[in-house]
Computed example of a mutant assay.
Amino acid sequence: MQTATLNINGMSCSGCASTVSRVLKNINGVQSAAVNLDAASALVEFDPALTGPEAFKAAVEDAGYDVV
């Protein structure tokens, strides 16, 4: 397993953080996703043979948030 940290703009409430967490966890190969609203970030643990940061960025942006 590997980990990646994403910096995310646009989250303003716990519902936003829950949405980001849900879309990340729905990606095949993601073991866990811990979203921190105050830090505007997400820590994703994943299997690099199945997915990677580009898929995370696409999923978060499709949900309406920006990955920086």
Rank of each mutant, 00 (worst) to 15 (best):
V67D: 03
I27E: 05
A4M: 08
I8A: 03
T19I: 04
L50I: 04
G15N: 15
K25H: 04
P48R: 03
Y65Q: 09
S32A: 14
T19A: 09
L6S: 06
A4D: 12
A63T: 10
I8E: 01
P48H: 01
A4S: 14
L24T: 02
S32C: 08
L50T: 08
G64D: 04
Q2G: 06
A55Y: 02
S18K: 10
F46I: 11
G52K: 14
I27Y: 08
Y65K: 11
A34N: 15
D62H: 09
G15H: 13
C13I: 07
A17R: 10
I27A: 06
N9G: 13
L43G: 04
N7R: 13
N36K: 10
S14M: 12
P48K: 04
D62V: 06
F56T: 03
T3F: 09
Y65N: 10
D66C: 07
V20K: 00
V35R: 03
G64K: 07
G10W: 02
G10V: 02
A4H: 15
A17H: 11
L24I: 03
G64R: 05
Y65F: 15
V20F: 00
Q2S: 15
S12C: 12
F46P: 08
L24G: 05
S32Q: 14
L37H: 05
L43A: 10
M11R: 09
T19D: 03
G29H: 00
T3P: 10
S14G: 15
L6C: 07
C13L: 08
L6I: 09
E54I: 12
G10N: 02
A17M: 11
P53E: 13
A63M: 07
G52E: 11
G64N: 07
I8C: 04
G52N: 13
V23W: 03
V23E: 01
A59H: 10
L37E: 03
G15W: 08
S32N: 14
A33T: 03
F46G: 04
S12I: 14
I27G: 05
N9R: 10
A42D: 04
S14Q: 14
L24P: 06
I27Q: 09
L50M: 13
F56M: 05
D38R: 12
A39G: 12
T3H: 08
C16H: 13
V60S: 05
C13H: 06
Q2D: 13
A59P: 13
Q31G: 04
A34Q: 13
S21E: 11
D47C: 01
F46R: 09
G64Q: 04
V44C: 00
A17W: 09
K25T: 13
V20E: 00
V35W: 00
A33S: 07
F46S: 06
D66L: 14
A63S: 10
A58M: 07
T5I: 15
S32E: 13
R22I: 03
V23N: 00
A58Q: 14
N36Y: 07
A49M: 01
A40T: 11
A63R: 06
P48D: 06
A63H: 09
A59W: 12
S21N: 08
A42E: 03
D66S: 15
M11G: 12
M1C: 02
